[in-house]
Design a protein around this nucleic acid. Structure first.
Lengths: 343, 343
DNA sequence: GATTAGCACTCTGATGAACGGAGTGCTAAA
DNA sequence: TTTAGCACTCCGTTCATCAGAGTGCTAATC
């Protein structure tokens, strides 16, 4: 059965109201609140919407709450784009004027901005280093047998990894290798460096195989091991919502969101899409069955390198969140570009 | 009034029991539970202990709960050192066998170990770079006008900071300066480097004043700006305890513990002491009025460079926590020393 | 035929009384 | 000095009651 205009209108009203109040919405309340039909009519339509799976009733004599199917429809077709107040966009812009020292600081600031403005929990993924181009590699001697590999990419992102080095390679040799690799692979994509490195290092630079292995891990593999690749902010914001007045639910949520590996995977997956909205059980994570995740990707030089997003209860204010994400996406794009002004 | 032997014994029983159950302890329960006096006697003693300020009564006809004064006495004089089971110390030791790549990883692992074994919230402060000796400084060119300063200390700790550089200084010059500073200041305490740097750089190395300023911030000042200096683990463990079954209390706690600046300051202050126990209102933080913080310091080459600790409800199991901290302190000392095997 | 007014019914959440349990303070006896 | 005994207090739970909000259904109305 198709949803006619009236059903859509009623459904939207219910979703809007429920997003605001978190209480089941009844027919009388709706008709009193400016709907042009009587409560009885609305009641009939609500019964239809329930059999169609868009609404649910917590118990016989309560109002209705939207189902996930309803949110899906709402997000895909019904919601009207909110636009931010001047004050909000000024506020948001303010976050990007500070901390422009390095990419990490900007992204941390982004997470803070998102969580404070949306009042939900914000996630920002640090840029995927693999899609960027190498600018500089520097090996710094630590102890005999160990060195610190500092990798800098064209996006201004740096990454340190401690690696094993054959004991017979001295500081000068490390420096020479650093320069050689920097010269040879500068402006190659990080993801491409790895394969070339294996082929060329052994011969040309005459370096031992286990050392190459070590270097490789510094260049590519390390981000998966490093838990700092996701910046979280406003995790406790969720405790404000009645959905989490139960401590055990709150705990489940917090425990899930602090699985940074999972969060990273989730964001990484989302980074190929301009925007994503994942509602309730569409989420893979056990602990997010009552949450929705909205993400946006960010780009450097036209290539998507990461994403950021907001987690809230399924009844989150999707329209507002999407507007904010869009705004942040723009701001972030400008700031990240400014790190590349050299080329 | 002095506390006689019997009062002490009763007080200890009450504290022990309350730590276990979180319920007010009554005289009958105590006498049933193996005390050698009748409930009436115990009752009289309890009344005395209450007027002396060691006990409090939530309401007229409830049992007694220990006051902060009682915990203080308990910690300072009464508690018996717990000893860990073989299994626990083996478990603990296990955490230190993994992740021995770099200092950061070890300390993150420490936080995890602490929170998982104690079931409280664990905090680990990254080592205070100032008290360590410089081993290597490397300036890596980013864009014209910016460079990445990588500082490595003898404790194997590295730190990256983006700094401003006069545009006329090229990559080779940066490399020269790096080598010069490394050669000149190697093995100086980081805190001493700063003052010497100002005096010498201008003349000997002929570098501009604003650049010196920039470098200084990379070498010393930066940790205060960097929020990653504290590793948190098990923040949600606290939600298990009845003290935090109220979401708003949980939120207050979580919000406090995530103020990493404050946590850093707290741990830094504690790092000059072998162990500290701070009970309830002895804490400076607003949000820790119902918590206790137990910390231990860790050393590198005999110098205390940082501290770590556990936060729990005031009725935490102090004896057990202190044993665990002592054990971790030892393990951590051994591991950190292993990073220095060079000298 | 679609809409709506009206009515009987249901379920929740708040309120208050009743009560058993655990604990106390006090007194008098051991 | 210690303890048995007793009257009393307070909490948490249970149960009944009741107002409020909402529903489904039927019959009247447009």
């Amino acid at each position: 059965m198709e949803l006619d205009q009236r059903k859509l209108q009623i459904l939207r009203a219910i979703v809007d109201e429920y997003i605001l109040s978190a209480n089941p919405v009844g027919s009388k309340a709706l008709s009193r609140g400016g709907m042009k039909w009587s409560s009885a009519t609305i009641r009939n339509e609500m019964a239809d919407l329930e059999t169609l799976g868009y609404l649910a009733q917590p118990h016989t004599s309560a109002g209705r709450i939207p189902s996930e199917k309803a949110y899906r429809l709402y997000v895909d077709q019904m919601m009207q784009r909110a636009h931010l107040s001047d004050e909000e966009s000024r506020l948001l812009y303010g976050y990007f004027r500070e901390h422009v020292r390095d990419v990490d600081a900007v992204l941390r600031s982004t997470a803070k901005a998102l969580s404070e403005i949306t009042h939900y929990t914000a996630l920002v993924m640090m840029p995927d280093i693999g899609v960027n181009r190498l600018r500089h590699l520097q090996l710094i001697p630590l102890t005999p047998g160990k060195a610190l590999a500092v990798v800098v990419t064209d996006a201004g992102v740096s990454q340190n990894t401690v690696i094993d080095v054959p004991e017979d390679i001295g500081p000068e040799e490390l420096d020479r290798i650093s320069k050689a690799i920097t010269a040879r692979f500068s402006d190659c994509r990080m993801s491409a460096v790895s394969s070339k490195l294996v082929r060329e290092l052994g011969g040309e630079l005459s370096v031992r195989a286990d050392f190459v292995e070590s270097l490789l891990s510094a260049l590519c593999d390390s981000q998966s091991r490093d838990r700092r690749m996701v910046e979280l902010s406003g995790t406790t914001n969720m405790l404000e919502y009645p959905e989490y007045s139960d401590v055990s639910k709150a705990k489940t949520f917090l425990a899930t969101v602090e699985q940074k590996d999972d969060m990273y995977r989730m964001l990484k997956k989302a980074s190929s899409m301009e925007f994503t909205v994942t509602i309730g059980s569409e989420n893979e994570q056990e602990g997010f069955q009552d949450c929705s995740v909205v993400t946006a990707s960010y780009r450097v030089n036209g290539t998507p390198v990461g994403s950021f997003g907001v987690i809230g209860p399924t009844r989150m204010d999707y329209a507002r969140v999407l507007s904010i994400l869009k705004n942040v996406q723009t701001n972030l794009g400008v700031v990240l570009q400014s790190f590349l002004k050299e080329e």
